[in-house]
Computed example of a mutant assay.
Amino acid sequence: MLARDDQDSLKRTPLHSLHVSLGGKMVPFAGYDMPVQYPAGVLKEHLQTRTSAGLFDVSHMGQIALRPKSGKVEDAARALEKLVPQDILAIAPGRQRYAQFTNADGGILDDLMVANFGDHLFLVVNAACKADDEAHLRAHLSDDCIIDSLEDRALIALQGPKAEAALAKLCAEATSMKFMDAGPHKVAGLACFVSRSGYTGEDGFEVSVPAGDAERLAKALLDNPDVMPIGLGARDSLRLEAGLCLYGHDIDTATTPVEAALEWSVQKSRRTGGARAGGFPGAEKILAHFDQGASRRRVGLRPEGRAPVREGALLFAGEAGSKPIGQVTSGGFGPSLNAPVAMGYLPTSSSALDTKLFAEVRGQRLPLTVAAMPFVKNTYKR
């Protein structure tokens, strides 16, 4: 438990008072005082998001505008391609793409979303990395772009099969948006940035709203009986079932996109031939992993029985003896499956689906199997 001085040093999102009024159990997370759950509890919040709609405060995330000094968004895209292995030039206006900042060794500094708003790029980065990400952008792109940290905005996520209907009451354009569409829209008369995306595997939206209007918008959404507030606990179990990486756990500065099973996120134009292949930090190592394979790989894991296998558990090829061959990076109970799920890293030679393994939990080795991800089928509106 944090000392009072440490608690007082935590930052608060614009929705902090609302969380407290709704009975949120507040905990430290990435330097912020955030709700881990509400009175309904993690299990009900998780299932609410899978069956109806859940509202998440993700205002701790970083929001950054990348404005080209030339006035041409293509120039901002070219500049950003110096830092990420993704094809940013190919993002059409009104669309967004998942990307990673990489380092000289091919490791991942952070993962992020990049949207093309027509005249500039809009980035959403992880809370724990946002100061470093902004400094990284300023160090490398200041000649080409104005880097504008949007600290006066909150960010909320509305996720679940009834998210579209709930948002459409406040933003009629929501119904026409497809997965990964993104751009400025009016929501309840407020000037917002809306993307059809999220971190749960469900259909849904992320809405950037002026900080001073965030509570009013959140309350308007929560007035809908199909929408419940959801805390960090269910956010984590939802993303785990969806097979989505958590930065600092499943991906980090020592992990390449190929090792992390994120090859799908690196477009062909950046990795095979042509003038735009390579040219990003760690390209030599990352492209070698594409060509020759990596020695290890992130995989899904399905433990037998009911006991969750948590982050840090060592993985073994056999029930007794031998040295560990891998480690769990995320693990817990999957409420939608009524069973435990996990992900971790194994030697590529041991990463085939249905491979039988053992995880060491409290001195015992529990059986598990390499499984396909996502564990729960995603419901994105393509």
Rank of each mutant, 00 (worst) to 15 (best):
K381E: 13
D33W: 08
A40K: 03
R153L: 11
E284F: 11
T256V: 04
E259Y: 00
G71C: 05
P257V: 07
A307D: 12
L141G: 02
G233C: 03
A40T: 04
T175Q: 10
C129R: 13
L217S: 10
G274K: 11
H60K: 12
E206K: 03
V114F: 02
A157K: 06
A242G: 09
F280E: 00
D110R: 09
R310W: 11
I146G: 02
I146F: 06
S195W: 08
A220S: 15
R138G: 05
N338W: 04
G274F: 06
Q86E: 15
G54W: 00
A371S: 14
A3I: 05
T329C: 05
L368N: 02
M26V: 15
K82I: 01
A166D: 03
A65R: 13
W264H: 12
D236P: 00
E81V: 05
G24S: 10
T329I: 09
I88F: 00
A166S: 15
A254T: 12
S237I: 10
R50I: 05
Y380P: 03
V299Q: 01
H249G: 00
V258I: 15
S351C: 01
R302D: 01
F290K: 06
G24I: 09
A371D: 13
A342W: 00
S195P: 01
A211I: 11
A174S: 11
G106K: 04
R365S: 02
F193M: 13
A79W: 01
A275N: 12
G24D: 06
S59E: 02
R270G: 05
L123G: 05
A320Y: 05
L240S: 02
I325H: 08
G274S: 12
A182Q: 01
T256G: 04
G31K: 08
I146R: 07
D252C: 11
G243D: 09
S295R: 15
Y199A: 07
R239Q: 10
L315C: 01
P225W: 02
L287V: 14
L55G: 09
Y247M: 07
A188N: 14
D181I: 05
A77S: 14
M61A: 15
P281F: 06
V36W: 08
Q7R: 14
V73E: 03
G305P: 10
L366G: 01
K381W: 07
A339L: 05
A104D: 15
R153K: 14
A174Q: 04
S195C: 12
P347K: 01
F101N: 04
D110V: 04
R67N: 08
K25S: 13
E151G: 15
R216D: 09
A79Q: 01
G107I: 08
C171K: 07
P303D: 08
G212W: 01
T329Q: 03
V42Y: 00
A234I: 00
Q159C: 14
G41S: 09
D223Y: 11
R362S: 13
A320R: 14
Y98Q: 13
Q48A: 01
R235Y: 07
L2K: 13
R365F: 08
V187C: 08
A320L: 09
Q37E: 15
